[in-house]
């Protein structure tokens, strides 16, 4: 049986507001409502995942906040990451009770969607065994971090479309000594976010229906 999902575009939304809305969606999906695929962008914020190491922030918190970048701890796997305008956030609120209770398969499917997305924009990207996320050569372009409650997923993907990459200099992204890149940087021009959203929704439908 096909498991449908509804696509919602929340636009540019504060991280905390989006988190609260995600939690509401998780409750709805737990009680039998349709799965959701949420697309949005956040104002600049560093989110500290459950496995964040103390040295992953490269500057004092006060110095980071003085640059207009908020800092918040979150209940997802992984280390620190940055969200900012120009980065497409994808939050699949999927009920894995109906889609197969296997976190590894779920994460691999997210990576496959991410690789397919980039191929559509002329970028050859790969996933690397043992390192979640998607890379172009040695540079990371898409971060992944997921939370699961009663086998309903939340959090998800951060796709660097037109992100200001200088903001990543504040951190060791995902706790790694890795440089970040974006679709804009690789293709040499700003990519319309609307085009990326349409393609993300299409690829999720192919992979998860």
């Amino acid at each position: 049986m096909k498991q449908r999902f509804v696509v919602e575009d929340w636009g540019l939304i504060d991280y905390a507001d989006a988190y609260n809305r995600q939690k509401t969606c998780v409750q709805s999906v737990m009680t039998g409502e349709e799965d959701r695929l949420i697309l949005c962008e956040h104002p600049a914020v560093l989110t500290l995942g459950r496995m964040t190491k103390p040295d992953s922030l490269l500057y004092q918190r006060e110095d980071i906040q003085a640059r207009g970048v908020m800092i918040t701890s979150v209940d997802r796997g992984g280390d620190v990451t940055l969200h900012a305008p120009g980065q497409l956030i994808v939050y699949p609120i999927f009920n894995l009770n109906k889609r197969g209770k296997d976190l590894k398969v779920y994460m691999e499917k997210l990576e496959e969607v991410a690789v397919d997305l980039l191929r559509n924009f002329g970028i050859l990207a790969i996933s690397i065994t043992g390192k979640r996320g998607v890379f172009v050569g040695p540079d990371k372009i898409i971060s992944i971090g997921v939370g699961v409650r009663k086998w309903v997923t939340y959090h998800g993907l951060g796709i660097n479309v037109n992100t200001d990459l200088s903001l990543f200099n504040l951190i060791k992204p995902c706790g790694l000594n890795v440089r970040m890149t974006s679709i804009q940087k690789l293709n040499g021009h700003v990519m319309p976010m609307k085009d990326v959203k349409i393609k993300v929704a299409e690829l999720f439908h192919k992979k998860f229906l």
Partner: peptide, 9 residues
């Protein structure tokens, strides 16, 4: 519990 960038409650 955290595994492989996923946090499971």
């Amino acid at each position: 519990a955290v595994t492989d960038k996923a946090s499971f409650v």
